[in-house]
């Protein structure tokens, strides 16, 4: 169950990255994606409640995943001492990767919750200007930068560990599969950090340029003077 909830969260986060990075294709592309999640393309008008509902589902999944993961953590002083002595002694890559997941997971419990609660409470505050204003003028870039790094390290490590846990290992392919999965996981983490970093920088830039008009929503074709004629 922990693995399954983790897998769903990983797939969600990776898909999320592609949607939020639509800003790299321009404000109109991001607005189209925003409208898609608000049901505009289906109902003809926006229903931001849909975004809240989706965030709630992810939040519940996160709570389940965190609850299940807690069982794995050292609970007693003896266990805590034992695992730290072990980590310091063995310097073993996969054990260290697990520990990185423990630390990032703990951080994500707060960072991801903060992000999801914001989305749940302000589902209509997503858009080319609304998001950028929040990120720059609302200083949410601090949260998002921390979240970006921790979530991708956690998800990439989780992906590798899930494959090793359940994967189609055979005596003949085990070593090669492990090597390839590790390489793939590192590549995926790097890719999403670049994609997410570029998106965040773009939102920050738009937010900075739009700082005088915080609260104004993006209307396609307007404010050619502010957005460089796009």
């Amino acid at each position: 169950m922990q693995g399954l909830s983790g897998l769903l969260l990983v797939l969600f986060v990776w898909a999320h990255m592609f949607f939020e990075s639509s800003i790299l294709l321009g404000k109109d592309a991001m607005l189209w994606v925003t409208h898609m999640f608000e049901g505009v393309h289906v109902f003809g008008e926006p229903y931001p409640q849909l975004v809240s509902a989706a965030a709630l589902v992810v939040f519940l999944l996160l709570a389940l995943h965190a609850g299940l993961a807690l069982r794995r953590l050292p609970a007693r002083a003896r266990e805590y001492r034992a695992i730290h002595t072990h980590l310091r002694s063995i310097h073993h890559a996969d054990t260290t990767v697990w520990y990185v997941q423990v630390v990032t997971g703990f951080a994500l419990f707060f960072l991801a919750s903060a992000h999801l609660i914001q989305v749940m409470l302000q589902p209509d505050a997503i858009g080319p200007y609304a998001s950028s204003d929040r990120i720059w003028s609302g200083r949410f870039w601090i949260l998002y930068a921390l979240l970006l790094i921790t979530v991708h390290v956690h998800a990439g490590a989780g992906f590798y560990r899930l494959v090793m846990k359940w994967g189609p290992l055979t005596a003949a392919n085990a070593a090669a599969l492990r090597r390839r999965t590790r390489t793939l996981a590192i590549f995926i983490v790097g890719f999403f950090l670049l994609l997410g970093g570029a998106s965040l920088a773009t939102y920050m830039k738009i937010g900075y340029e739009h700082r005088a008009l915080v609260g104004e929503r993006y209307v396609p074709g307007s404010h050619a003077d502010l957005n460089g004629g796009e």
């Binding site: 794995r72 063995i90 073993h92 996969d94 054990t95 697990w98 560990r161 090793m164 846990k165 005596a171 085990a174």
Partner: peptide, 15 residues
């Protein structure tokens, strides 16, 4: 927890 210490340190290289 799939830490794989067993796999990496088995002196008999058991799978």
């Amino acid at each position: 927890m799939t830490l794989l210490g067993c796999e990496d340190y088995c002196p008999k290289n058991l799978p």
